[in-house]
Each structure stands twice: as structure tokens, then as C-alpha cells.
Design a binder for these strands. Structure first.
Lengths: 217, 217, 217, 217
DNA sequence: CATGAATGAGCGTTCATTCAT
DNA sequence: CATGAATGAACGCTCATTCAT
């Protein structure tokens, strides 16, 4: 249906003025995506808002998908870069702080561009063409799996992939909802503490291995 | 642009033949939503696929949003009905089993119509117009909050709303990802056990009350 | 480049008013082809001239090629029908009258719709997509070959295919030019006589077989 | 729309590098005319194929018509030059050889650049703007008329203009079709002999002067 | 009520052409 | 003179919607 080629920019901007044109197009795309939604988004409108002729738009992007894809790609790449960096700093920390660090890192990432994040996850279909939007979660899952495997003696959960899955996608569900909350509806500070607590408890060897029986002794 | 009125069917089908027409339209809508995506969806195509004239389609639905909205509404209502029923059964159970029951209930709900669920959460924007798609989560959050408040003496977390938030949206994040997993990629049985463990531990009074500091003494 | 499908009408007009729409479109196509040329021809203009909405045009024809193709096809079919009929009448005639009859028939055919004929052969590219425009000449070549073979004892030329080729395409070249002549530039009556003479002489067994030597004894 | 001025190159290339640019543009034009057809032809594409910037193209030609016109003009001029030369050699020959010589000359001309010839007569509209493409035929008609008038005592046909018309356009029709034949479909050697025979017989005083009636006594 | 022909606003996209660098 | 970024008129075509039959 939509070739890989259709997602790819048509030509790289070489001159500075071309770079500015591209920047204006992406900014306008983000704005209109917010105001109108993905479906109503259209190239004529984007060009007008960007103060650029429709012809120039088509010099650089073959269609609106490609523009949105560029937005997604930029964001995903920046977010994954941050995740990787955080993980490098994490190797030295005790496991209980790791849990909290992941929570904080995911929040920070979301805060990097909260509007764009909200926008893209609200408006875009979660289809293959925008896989990168969620794709960085898979990469994060890989990192967390590896880290948990490295620390398997310090933690409880048997299979690192499963534990990482629960942590990454569970936290993502919470954070995504936080991104949709209206101001003051929920206390995000408290939420962060509770999410950390949940993750820490989940990873902890303490408590009991035989779960509920021991829980309420 | 999308008034509340625009979402509402034009008239209720009274005769049986009319009921069949509506059914055919909704089935065709679901099929084409899957095959083409929300954006490409169009009324002429839906009518053709349903074996119904375009004029007849407009007898029952004023536009394509209304068709999709009907799909969403049906599903959301059926899902919330199940949730309420489960909760009625839950009041008698010990708290640790409540956690597990919620997990199981959410999975069951997702399994009710897994394809339609995947379809709708993949293809539709998460905007106000399709709020019902996520809206039942809010209602679930209300139910869980109430239940946790009722049991606040049995559990650890201080604020029931916060705890319910963490549980509901965390689990939803995990289950949504499970819905996207390819066959055999992850062991869903193990996942269910681990998610239950996580929720149970999170609610448990044991371990530490003063959070992580006390956890690893 | 251009699929066979692209040439084919989208749907057959069933109702009378649809038939009128199609007729108006083809008439407008012919007019504008004359006024503007094939390259400048465009669907919006055709629809406007036909007094029909652009949407209706696209209900019946997928693009301008298909419209022009329909024009070509109609003409080619009518012309070939005439040729076949003429040939049926010709079987009884002596060979020298056959030559004249072919000349007259080709002229009549051209006179059937002289403007449309001029138009199409002036404006259209002689590519595969409009092959039918010249295609009927091939069919005519087949008929003439067969007739000459049937009469091979009455005529001179050794190979009927070659003779038919010379006659058909030679005459076509002359008639095509006649179609382009401005009024009064050349005496078409005289031309017809001379062309007949040429063809008759060409087919005749008389004169000499060893050509030029005997010609001017 | 297409002023005479629009057909004319903007400036003559003086330096050698400029001459190469023009050459590259015309070569690219011919290639793309073949690959895409006249309608799809466009200046951006021509410039790209020629390895020249679009700005440079517009230094030399004001539009795509001018490029194609240049191609036509070159060919027409070269072809007419050959015709004139042939005719100069022809004045001494006996009339029967003249007929054969014209056939041979027309074939040679067509063979001069068979691809370009096929291309241009296939792809271009036969309208005033490319009149030169057929225009040399008119000039040829003039030459043949004059030659036949000069020799009117040696030949049969009453009016030299009519005879020249029949000969020139008849032969052109045959030769044009030969240019479209697929390899091996028809024996071109035999065709040339038969065409010569036809023309010779047509011009010959023998046989009958009073046309067909006398032919088969 | 069902049908499907007709409508036309409006988005998608191209490409001839200009002009600052 | 060459370059190629930018322009925007204008054509291609779809699809939601209406309405006569």
C-alpha cells in the first residue's frame, strides 16, 4: 500500500535557505497535526502555514506521510539517544535505584517534547508506517532485558525478558496516560513515587517468592 | 466539524431487513478499516462492500465517523458491561486475589473481540471523538479506586486514586502490547503470572511501608 | 506505462440520462481536441464544455486517454464495418472496377466523418494506445490481400500481400493528405480519377511484365 | 499560444562548451520523446537527462516546443537538402528511371535517421507548429511537379501537379508504413520493386490514355 | 425505502518558469 | 554564464453528499 520509498525525503536540502524551508515545513506539520488531526492534515495547508510554496514542499517530501514520518523519526531518534545515555550512567547504581532511574528517564524523555509526544501518539495510527513511534520501546525493552540479565542475581523475576516487558510497557502505559491528563487532575509527583515503588517491589528479592501466601502472613 | 450530533445514527432500523443492512454496513466498515486504514476509509467503498447502495448508507449514518463511532460504542459498552460484572463478583474476594482477577478480567475483555480491539486501537486517533475507545478505562479507574478505598485497611498504597491509576493504566499498557505481539514472540502465560505478581506486591502492606529506603535494609 | 485498463470505460451507462452524459462528454472531447489539441486537452475542460460535472466524467472514463480512445474506437469500428460491406458487394465486379471501388470506398469512409478523421489523425500520437486509428488499415490490408489472391489470375502483381500493401498504404497516404488540403487548393475530382488510374494500371496484366524496357518501346 | 517567436532558440551558442550543452539537450529531448512521448516530455526531465541545470536549458530554449522544433527543423533541412541534390542528378535521366530514383531517394531519406524519423512522426501532432515535419513533402511536391512539367511530353498524366501529388503522397504513405513494420514482417526489397513498378506504369504513356475503359479491350 | 447518477469542493501533484546566489 | 531553490497556476482525481427516479 505505502512503499518504503514513499516515506523517504525526495532530496536533501543542501543550501541554507533550503534547510530553513524544511524546518518551516516540519514545524507547520506539527502545528497542523495538533490543530486539525492527521486525517485533515493536507499538503497545501502545510505549505501555506510554513510560508512556503506547495512546489517547494514537494521538492523535499513526496506526501504528508513523509512529513509526519520525518517528525516521528527525529523524535524517536532523540528519545532513544537519551535512553542509551541514561543506561550508560546506570550500570553503577544499585538495583533499587535503577528502577527509579528508569521511571525518571522515561518521564524526562516524555518531557523532552511533551506536546509533540502527545500529538503523535494521539493523532497517528499505530501502523507499520509509523512503527518508529513505538519502535524505540522495543529497543528500550532490549536494553532493560540486558541490564536485568546482567543483574539477575540481585533481582527476583525469573526471566529478564518477561520482567523487562512488564516494566517497560507497564510504565509506558502509565506515562502515556499522564501525557493525556488535564492540568491538576492527578498529582504527578505522587504518581512518580508510586510507579517507582511498584517497580522496585516488583524487582526486589525480598518479600516472598511464593507470592500471596506469604504476603499477608 | 464533528458535532456530537454528527456521531449519532440518523434513525433506528425497525424492520428486520433494515437491521441486516445496518449489520452489513458495520461489518464492511470493520473489514475496510482493517484493510485500508481509517484515513482511506470512505462511504462509497463501505456501501459497495456491504452490498448496499450509497443512498441506503446515508439513510442510517450521516458520515463515516458515525459508522466507526457505532463500532467503537458497541465494543466499549460490551467491555464495560463485563468489567462491571466482574467487579460485582469481586467484592467478596481477598485483596490479593482481586489483583489477579483484574488482570484476568482485562485479558478476557481484550479477548472478547481481539481483532476488532486491535483494529480500533491501531487505526483510530485517540481524540475526543473516539473517547469511548479509551473512556471505559476511566470508568474502570473509578471502579478500582472505589474498591481500593473500600479496602484501604488491607492495602499499602496511601491514595486509592493513585494506586488505581498505576494499576489500571500500567496493566492496560502491557495488555495493549500483548495484543500487538506476533504469535509465539513472548510467553503470554508467564506474562500474566508476572503481571499478577507485580500488582499483588504493589498492593501488599508487607515489605516496606516507607518505600524503597527500607527495602534493602 | 499505460495499462490496457486505463483505456477502458469505468462503467457502462445504464439509464438514459447516463447515456446522454456519455454522449455529451464524447462530443465535447472531439470539439476540444480540435480547438486545443491533444496535449492541451484536459478533463476539467471537457466536463465544463459537456455541461457535466467533473465527477460524472470520472464515473465513466478514468482519464482523457480513455475518452479519446472511445472516439477512436467508435470511428474505427464504423469504418471497418463499411469496408467489409463494400467488399461483400465487390466480389462480383471485374478487377478494373475493383480498383476504382476501393478508391471510392476509402474516400467515402473518410467522408463519413471528415472532421473527426482529420482531427484524430492530426492530433493523436501514432502510438500503440491509439493503434485502432491505423489498425483498421491492417484489417483492410488483410481483406485486399485475400481479394487479390482470389483474383490472382486476373492481375499482374506476383505477391498479393505486397500488392495489397502498396495499394492500401499508398492510397491511404494520398487520402490522408487530401483530408488536410485547404478548400480549392487541389482538384479532388481529378485526383480520384488519377488515383484510380494508378491502381488500375498497377494491377493490370497488360502493358509489359518486364517493366521499363517495354514501356517506351 | 505558440507564437512563431516561441519556437526560436533564445540565443546562438558561440563557445564550444555551449555548443555541447545544446547538443546534450537535443539528444536528451530525442531520447525522452521516444521513452515518454511528446505529452509526458518536460523541461526539468530534459535538463536532468542532459546533465545540465534547468537554468541553462532556458538560456537556449524558451520551452519544450522549441526543443522539439529544433529537432524537427534539423531533420527537415537535412532531408530536403538530400532531395534537392538527388533532383539535380536526375535531370539527365530518362523518365522511367526518374520514377525509380524518387522511390530510392525517399527511402534513403527515411534511412538517414530512421529512429528519429519514426519518433517524430509517431509522437508529434501534425499541426502547424511542426509543419516542417511534413512541410518538406510540399517542397518535394513542388520539385516533382516542376520536373513532370518539364517532361510533360514524355509522360501520360495530364496535370503535373496532380501526378506529383499522387506520386509523392502515395509513396510517402507506403514508406511511412514501412518505417513502422516490425522486422521481417514484409519483404521491403520486393516492396521497393513494386512501388517502382507502380510509379513507372502510372507515368507511362503506353497502355491506355483513355483510362480503364480501354484497358481491357 | 432503495437506488445510483450526478454534483462539486477541495486536496494531490506536476512542471514551466524565474531569479538569487 | 551556470546553478538549483523557489514559485504557483492549473490540472488530476476523489469522495462525501444529494436527489430524481
Amino acid at each position: 500500500m505505502s512503499d518504503e520509498q514513499e516515506m523517504v525525503p525526495r532530496k536533501k536540502p543542501r543550501q541554507r535557505r533550503a534547510q530553513e524551508t524544511v524546518e518551516a515545513l516540519l514545524t507547520a506539520t506539527a502545528q497542523l497535526l495538533d490543530e486539525e488531526g492527521y486525517e485533515q492534515l493536507n499538503t497545501n495547508q502545510i505549505a501555506r502555514r510554513a510560508g512556503v510554496s506547495i512546489g517547494s514542499l514537494y521538492q523535499y517530501y513526496p506526501n504528508k506521510e513523509a512529513l509526519v514520518f520525518a517528525l516521528v523519526e527525529r523524535l524517536a531518534d532523540r528519545q532513544y539517544a537519551i535512553v542509551k545515555e541514561k543506561f550508560a550512567e546506570m550500570v553503577e547504581l544499585p538495583v533499587e535505584e535503577v528502577a527509579r532511574e528508569i521511571v525518571v528517564a522515561l518521564l524526562e524523555i516524555r518531557q523532552l517534547e511533551p506536546e509533540l509526544n502527545r500529538l503523535l501518539s494521539e493523532q497517528l495510527p499505530r501502523t507499520a508506517q509509523f512503527g518508529k513511534l513505538r519502535g524505540w520501546l522495543e529497543r528500550l525493552h532490549g536494553l532493560v532485558s540486558a541490564e536485568l540479565r546482567r543483574r539477575h542475581q540481585e533481582i527476583r523475576p525469573p526471566a529478564p525478558e518477561i520482567a523487562a516487558y512488564v516494566i517497560v510497557y507497564g510504565m509506558h502505559g502509565i506515562i502515556e496516560q499522564m501525557g493525556m491528563d488535564k492540568e491538576g487532575e492527578v498529582d504527578h509527583g505522587q504518581l512518580v513515587r508510586e510507579v517507582s515503588e511498584m517497580m522496585t517491589r516488583y524487582l526486589s528479592k525480598r518479600s516472598s517468592d511464593d507470592e500471596t501466601n506469604a504476603m499477608f502472613g
